[in-house]
Design a protein around this nucleic acid. Structure first.
Length: 422
RNA sequence: GCGGGCGUCGCCAAGUGGUUAAGGCAGCGGCUUGUGGCGCCGCUAUUCGGGGGUUCGAGUCCCCUCGCUCGCCCCA
């Protein structure tokens, strides 16, 4: 019989890895609590139209990466490819936006049908923050600070914050026209990829990896020059706020995020240790999205961190810590039916008393059980053989020192161990 | 979706057309049927991701397929 495998790009997290994930989640939860950000949980499945309208029909995410299917009622459903659209939908649906600014975070799996590679899976996990109903430039910086500080708290080093301003939709429309005109004029000198993008997504040409194209682009009109005065001032305020927070950043005028809903501030936090998929965190302002999804005009900023990429950046020291946390204090050895029942009882009582206890269920010779007790790393072994079982006692043995074995009633042995650890 | 690399035991890994597929770790058993850590001995792949083909003969060559991986694209 052929064993079954997980679907391509769908990854199991084995016990050796989950401790790291739990630490990230716990750290994030506490970090958000201090930042006054509350958790929101939305369904993994949404009507397809939500993403088509929210993210943009022309984007790669919507155009070719969504897990979309018809349910039994013939509705087109999509496994969420990102979190923002769902959060905004939920906020609108439940009238949250009538109650003042909403500071929300979410986490969980996202789905994108792409070719897997390092730091990229078809089911991946994000943790993200959305600040809805905040308009000021300082809030952009605050959102970035929440992400930056979280990464710092987790101990991720070597990160770079890249920053750009996309201006208002008007700015972008105007710039887009200028850029397209310029690109058309230089069409012959562009690589074929870029030529195609003139019509599909002209701003993306700026990001071309083709060196000749890059050289040519030095003479192209820049988005920064096309920004209206207000957009310019706004961006300056964001930068001043980041400087005040002492969060270093580099301006990246080519940073054009792939989702349609961004305006003004766009940023990415990248690492040079991730290979091609260098972005750990990406986000920005999206003032038009709420309205576009049928809600009241609501300014907003947000970001998402890719957890798989974050895990890649965390050191292996984690694995060691996790193993240590699972080391039992007490290893219970037994042989014989009555003894095994008493061993089970002792083990569960020990756990109820707050001790990490493990029971050997092999029924093997004591020699074997002691060997396993030793390997478990437990400092104490409780031994229950037929004699102990008959007398209702246990033998407590110090596996690390060479103190004498103690023969105690089960309850005494437990309270003795509890005292030892407090 | 497009290119490149790879796929031998749970993990690491030798093997590059010719009898029985090294070794290490882990696991299990024994020396030691009530006392561990060391040591010694033994066991664990009729099979080399799967399927076809070439050949007297294939883990080793070819084709297809699945998976992983790196890059492109895109993004977290």
């Amino acid at each position: 019989m052929e064993p079954l495998q997980s679907l391509r790009g769908m990854v199991d997290l084995l016990p050796s890895a989950t401790a790291t994930w739990q630490r990230i989640e716990a750290t994030a939860r506490e970090h958000f609590r201090r930042a006054g950000v509350s958790e929101i949980r939305t369904p993994l499945l949404e009507v397809t139209e939500l993403f088509a309208r929210g993210i943009g029909e022309a984007t790669d995410v919507v155009g070719k990466e969504m897990y979309t299917f018809l349910d039994r009622g013939e509705r087109s459903c999509t496994l969420r490819p990102e979190g923002t659209a769902s959060v905004v939908r939920a906020a609108i649906q439940h009238g949250l936006l009538n109650q003042g600014p909403q500071r929300l975070w979410y986490g969980g799996p996202m789905f994108r049908y792409e070719r897997p590679q390092a730091g990229r899976q078809r089911q991946f996990h994000q943790i993200g923050v959305e600040l809805l109903g905040v308009a000021d430039a300082e809030s952009d910086a605050e959102a970035i600070a929440v992400a930056w500080d979280l990464l710092a708290e987790l101990g991720v080093g070597g990160l770079q914050l890249e920053l750009n301003s996309l201006g208002t939709p008007d700015d972008r429309v105007r710039y887009r026209a200028e850029l397209v005109a310029w690109l058309e004029a230089h069409r012959e000198q562009l690589d074929s990829d870029s030529q195609q993008r003139i019509t599909t997504n002209p701003l993306r040409v700026l990001d071309s990896k083709n060196p000749a194209t890059q050289a040519l682009l030095a003479g192209a009109p820049t988005l920064a020059d096309a920004l209206a005065g207000e957009s310019h001032e706004r961006f300056a305020r964001v930068r001043l706020a980041l400087e005040a927070l002492e969060i270093p950043f580099v301006l990246n005028p080519r940073l054009v995020r792939g989702l349609d809903y961004y305006s003004h501030t766009a940023f990415e936090i990248t690492s040079n240790q991730l290979g091609a998929q260098a972005t750990v965190c990406g986000g920005g302002r999206y003032d038009g999205l709420v309205q576009q999804l049928g809600g009241p005009a609501t300014p907003a900023v947000g970001w998402a961190i890719g957890l798989e990429r974050l895990v890649l950046l965390l050191s292996q020291a984690e694995a060691g810590e996790a193993a240590a946390a699972a080391t039992p204090l007490l290893y219970v050895i037994s042989r014989g039916e009555l003894a095994e029942r008493q061993a089970l009882l002792l083990t569960c009582r020990a756990r109820q008393a707050g001790l990490i206890a493990e029971r050997d269920s092999s029924g093997a010779a004591f020699g074997k059980q002691f060997k396993r007790a030793d390997r478990s790393g437990a400092p104490w072994a409780a031994v229950i053989g037929e004699r102990e079982a008959a007398d209702g006692v246990v033998v407590l043995k110090d596996l690390r020192g060479d103190g004498p074995e103690q023969r105690l009633a089960a309850g005494e042995a437990l309270s003795w161990l509890v005292e030892l650890t407090t």
